[in-house]
Design a protein around this nucleic acid. Structure first.
Length: 473
RNA sequence: GGCGGGGUAGCCAAGUGGUAAGGCACGGCUCUGCAAAAGCUGUAUGCGUCGGUUCAAUUCCGACCCUCGCCUCCA
């Protein structure tokens, strides 16, 4: 069965086929974070989405090279660096480290390459030079270099591939006027920004004088350098469709480095944004979450990952604390099932994956990553497994094979197993044993009293067929 | 104004021209000294509204209502 993805370029679901003649290697670029502050939960929806794409391609047997840029020079960063009075590197380094820690907490595989804009200045200059030579870019009186959309279109190229655009009717907002005023046309965008006093020590030499790269150019320069001038997949949040990705196409195809007839990117995918508690995230509404706001409330990275992966990537998703609590219960259901399987399989040799879970799982994800359908397959498998477990219809070897099936799908889902529970302190264990003794003596009043005492201290007793156990609330 | 999403049970969320996956919550049952935990199980004559096509529509077509996003900071 074929793997199908929605392609923003064609606005339709189409079969995914890599450019690699052998059909094996896939180049994938995802627009990464601007590290001027902690990334928020909305940013992470996109990165978890990219992680799903990467893992699923690997599940489907492709060898993926996953590149995610780190934007470490940009207006906001420069402003903060100035305010903080530290070096650019010092400032961005802190947020970059935090970003990767968050990514790991969310169970995302680290990208194979995480190129920094500031480390690709020569490549960026080379690309701008190529555009200047071709007459598609010009230096304005303010010293900055801009991309001319008019010239680009004059060459028969299409500006407006990812969305329908009527350039003449674009609303010109006030923000535009306050910013780049030296351009020949309002739609032109900066490739190289001339140094201004506010930039402080943040500038590089270039054929056009000291300055720094524009926003869009880094992605073109880095992606083409690392993945070649034509590559398979380019991902990002839906807001990047225009202008960021449109401009990337213009720059990258304008330079003409692709083979004749070749495109910059074959397949564009965009993740929808999320709402938090039904509203657009905003600091004043108090629904603006960075990861540690959530982990600070006791939610784990895997619970957040599960929730972010519960809805289709092209649908606006409503992220709620209530949903997070639901995620916890749902994951516990999976954990419980897996724990029983492990117990039963102990000692059994690792077997090949058994059952139809992987096939049902693949059928769902093949259709433009129908992740909700994939979870449906998982939970149906959980119910069936529980039923068989209850009826003792599992041999240890079969249990091991069922676990192997889970591992196959979890390589994509990435929720793994629950982290080990907290060890109970001695005094709690003492109370626990006291309760067990009372219970054994059939002094239930005393047993219940101790149980309540434990509960007050944050520990609950769960009586299972295998005996009682302690669990932290 | 232009362009593009979306409206499915209390909540979240799949899906299909032939009668509605899954998760959470809730109810019932099993287990238990009782709870809890866990397991099993039940719950939408209905898929925004009104028309149309069809043997059959939630699924196709048309109109309308509501809602969200983007239109050069933005995942």
């Amino acid at each position: 069965m074929a793997l199908n993805f929605f392609n923003t370029l064609t606005r339709s679901v189409e079969e995914f086929a890599p450019l690699d003649p052998a059909g094996k290697k896939v180049g994938m670029y995802c627009c990464g974070p601007t590290i001027h502050d902690s990334a928020h939960i909305g940013n992470f929806r996109t990165f978890v989405f990219a992680d799903l794409v990467r893992r699923y391609l690997e599940f489907r047997g492709y060898t993926v090279r996953h590149v995610m840029n780190i934007t470490d020079v940009e207006d906001k960063i420069i402003a903060r660096v100035r305010a903080a009075g530290v070096s650019l590197k010092e400032y961005t380094g802190k947020y970059e480290a935090a970003f990767f820690a968050d990514l790991q907490a969310l169970g995302c595989q680290p990208p194979h390459d995480s190129p920094h804009a500031t480390e690709f200045i020569p490549e960026i200059i080379a690309l701008i030079s190529a555009l200047v030579v071709k007459g598609l870019a010009y230096q304005a009186p303010d010293g900055s270099v801009y991309f001319s959309i008019e010239k680009y279109r004059g060459c028969g190229c299409v500006y407006g591939q990812l969305l329908k655009l009527n350039l003449d009717e674009l609303r010109v907002g006030e923000r535009v006027r306050s910013d780049e005023y030296a351009k020949e046309s309002v739609s032109d965008f900066a490739l190289w920004k001339a140094r201004v006093p506010e930039d402080g020590a943040v500038f590089w030499p270039s054929p056009w004088g000291e300055g720094r790269p524009g926003w869009h150019i880094e992605c073109s320069a880095m992606s083409m350098k690392l993945l070649g001038p034509s590559f398979d997949l380019h991902l990002g949040g839906e807001d990047l469709v225009f202008p960021h990705h449109e401009d990337e196409i213009a720059q990258s195809e304008g330079a003409g480095w692709q083979a004749p007839g070749g495109r910059f990117v074959k397949h564009w995918m965009h993740g929808a944004h999320l709402l938090v508690e039904g509203k657009k995230m905003s600091k004043t509404l108090g629904n603006f979450f960075v990861l540690k706001d959530l982990t600070g409330q006791g939610f784990t990275g895997r619970e957040i990952r599960y929730l972010l992966l519960s809805a289709h990537y092209r649908e606006t998703f409503n992220f709620t604390l209530d949903g997070l609590r639901g995620a916890r219960t749902a994951l516990a259901r999976i954990d419980e099932c897996l724990a029983k399987l492990r117990e039963l399989a102990a000692g059994a040799t690792a077997a090949a994956a058994a059952g139809d879970l992987p096939a049902a799982f693949q059928a769902a994800l093949d259709e433009d990553l129908n992740v909700a359908g994939a979870w449906g397959a998982v939970f149906e498998w959980v119910r069936e497994t529980n039923r068989r477990l209850a009826e003792q219809r599992f041999t240890p070897a079969e249990a091991a094979a069922a676990l192997a099936a889970w591992q196959v799908v979890d390589a994509v889902l990435g929720v793994g197993a629950a982290p080990a529970g907290e060890e109970a302190p001695a005094e709690i264990v003492a109370l626990f044993e006291q309760r067990q003794a009372a219970r054994k003596a059939r002094d239930f009043a005393a047993a219940d009293a101790v149980r309540n005492e434990l509960k007050a201290r944050g520990w609950v007793i769960e009586d299972t067929p295998k005996g009682a156990r302690l669990k932290k609330v």
